[in-house]
Design a binder for these strands. Structure first.
Lengths: 143, 143
DNA sequence: TTATTTCCTACTTAATTGATATGGTTTTAG
DNA sequence: CTAAAACCATATCAATTAAGTAGGAAATAA
């Protein structure tokens, strides 16, 4: 039940871009240095974010990447689903058709509840929320 | 973010035991046949459940396994954590100490929320709930 | 034109997982 | 006593994933 590095790095990448908005495009090399992630690995990840329209790329010298929209317009779910794939706890939930085994279908109800609970969190949290948490992390633990 | 077969099979195993309570111990061979899972694989899984005290084993001829307690006393979380290990979306949540990287800690808040959401579901669902769902699955989809 | 940067394809390497198999030992009902 | 079961330890083997590497093509600001 682990989130892979792809998704985690994608999130940090987006956060890094958001944190370094100056109007100038942000170089992947700099993100890699700041985040301590291999540039080549980040290249693979940002390619997905780019195709998905989450970032804008500017090629050539002095090029780099820009966040395409306002941080409040990105949900964490958008970023994770793009880079991680589905996020459901079992394959079976991806298709409409239930499996042949009846017993499975009982557990399917459970997996659906788990999936919904995860979605509820990631689809209601935006990149802006993460940025807001940065200042006063402590407060968020007081629940 | 997938649950592995170990956890899924463990759940089906417990359900099978619950569904076949006659007072007689249930043979693993029969569970394997009913569930279409290799007996040897189930052997590995039930060993964990046995050590965890979730099932009772009766050795020797005509032996088998019995559910140790009432189905309402098992949460899905108990079964999954035993067989799957932690269930948190990131390693980092398993220890108290946060990682060195600050950016990570922002996302940690998010991962914590995801973990809590998952726990909320699996720790409040019992084996008895799954049994109840078996009769009238349709109803549960009407939410 | 040149250096910088994105973009693209393919390769690698290690670890993990899924599922099963091999080959027993021990317990116990009948 | 015998067969049926749990128990136990290892091994296998393919597939997948994780995390990167390598090397170069295309675009572009300076």
């Amino acid at each position: 039940m682990k989130i892979s590095t792809r998704g985690r790095y994608a999130l940090r990448l987006m956060l890094d871009l958001a944190n370094n908005q100056t109007g100038e495009p942000v170089k992947l090399k700099d993100v890699a240095r700041r985040q301590g992630i291999s540039e080549k690995y980040l290249e693979q990840i940002i390619a997905v974010l780019n195709k998905g329209g989450l970032v804008r790329s500017i090629r050539g010298a002095q090029g780099g990447y820009l966040i395409a929209r306002d941080p409040s317009e990105y949900t964490v779910g958008m970023i994770l689903r793009l880079t991680e794939g589905s996020l459901t706890p079992v394959e079976c939930l991806e298709s409409d058709t239930c499996c042949e085994r009846e017993t499975d279908c009982v557990t399917r109800i459970l997996w659906k509840k788990v999936a919904d609970a995860v979605s509820q969190v990631i689809d209601s949290t935006t990149l802006q929320d993460l940025l807001d948490w940065q200042g006063n992390e402590g407060d968020n633990y007081v629940i």
